[in-house]
Design a protein around this nucleic acid. Structure first.
Length: 289
DNA sequence: AAAATACACAACCGCATTATA
DNA sequence: TTATAATGCGGTTGTGTATTT
């Protein structure tokens, strides 16, 4: 025994509404209102439609002051915030967005915001980092797997090092404590590269200056510390103290924003870590889908 | 240029809740 | 008070259009 249908499906029209039908429904409702009963409305308005269909058409489309599409960033933020608080209670979320219907918010979520939400969730998750360690020259090297703000796979490493017993991890958070290697020689070229004697745990270090344009609007001239070791390159912006071991900087400096699909920040494709990280990336991609 | 695929949004379905007789 | 109808809601599907192959 199924549920009793709300109307005779063989006698009502289904699918998209024609402009004529819209006019009939709109005119009827503006003149008479719902009369407190959607089920009997189609008959009274002379529409071959199910009452529920009429209600939906009116509430989601024909009703005055309804906005369609063009969600603003502020609206997106409200939806994202509320979704995180109360989940998929679309009518409640829509009630906080004047002119928006629950159906519209739900559609917008399913087509656009869900990805944004998942990405930020994954970013939060990935920010914690994937860690594994091994010993290189008596330094503990922690390998962190994360996403940079472009959503690109990024790989960085931090040291639990013998260099300073009071500092357990060298990262962007405490890079001001990073013991700089001794400057041994200076070379000049068009990128103003200064070569520095390598530190015991680094194969080589360079300081260089270059003007970098972010997204065509945000330009910054930074002095970077570039260090290389056997897992790849590391860049630290000496003015902001932000470091990144990433081909992200490589790509900006060398190719603008022309990222390669499978770039992994800071990882030498010939290194033993590369396949390992690709595997991890595959797992994350599956998790994202 | 045609077919396949992806995307956006409208509409439907059935269950839960609320209103009414 | 309770049975039934109407309404509200959210998951899901359908449809037209845009983009890619």
């Amino acid at each position: 025994m199924g549920r009793a249908p709300c109307c005779d499906k063989t006698k009502v029209k289904r699918g998209p509404w024609s402009p004529e039908e819209d006019n009939i429904l709109k005119n009827y409702l503006e003149k008479n209102g719902t009369g407190g009963n959607w089920i009997s409305l189609p008959q009274k308005a002379d529409l071959r439609r199910c009452g529920k269909s009429c209600r939906l058409r009116w509430l989601n489309y024909l009703r005055p002051d309804i906005k369609h599409g063009g969600f603003t960033e502020e609206e997106d933020n409200i939806i994202l915030t509320l979704y995180r608080q109360i989940g998929s209670r679309w009518s409640v979320i829509a009630a906080n967005l004047p002119g928006r219907t629950d159906n519209d918010v739900k559609n917008h979520w399913n087509t656009k915001l869900k990805k944004k939400h998942l990405a930020s969730q994954n970013n939060n998750f990935l920010d914690i980092g994937y860690n594994f360690t091994n010993n290189i020259n008596s330094s503990d090297l922690n390998h962190n797997y994360s996403r940079n703000y472009h959503g690109k796979l990024d790989y960085s490493n931090t040291f639990t090092s013998h260099m300073d017993p009071n500092v357990t991890n060298y990262s962007s958070k405490n890079c001001d404590q990073f013991p700089f290697p001794t400057l041994m020689e200076i070379q000049e070229n068009d990128a103003t590269i200064q070569s520095i004697q390598e530190d015991s745990s680094l194969d080589s270090c360079q300081i260089f200056q270059k003007c970098v344009t972010f997204e065509e609007t945000n330009t910054c001239a930074s002095t970077f510390l570039k260090s290389t070791n056997n897992t790849g390159c590391n860049y630290m912006d000496l003015s902001s103290g932000i470091s990144s071991s990433s081909s992200y900087y490589d790509d900006i400096l060398e190719n603008g924003f022309d990222f390669q699909e499978n770039d992994i920040g800071g990882v030498d494709p010939n290194s033993s870590y590369y396949n390992n990280i690709l595997e991890i990336d595959q797992l994350f991609k599956e998790f994202e889908n």
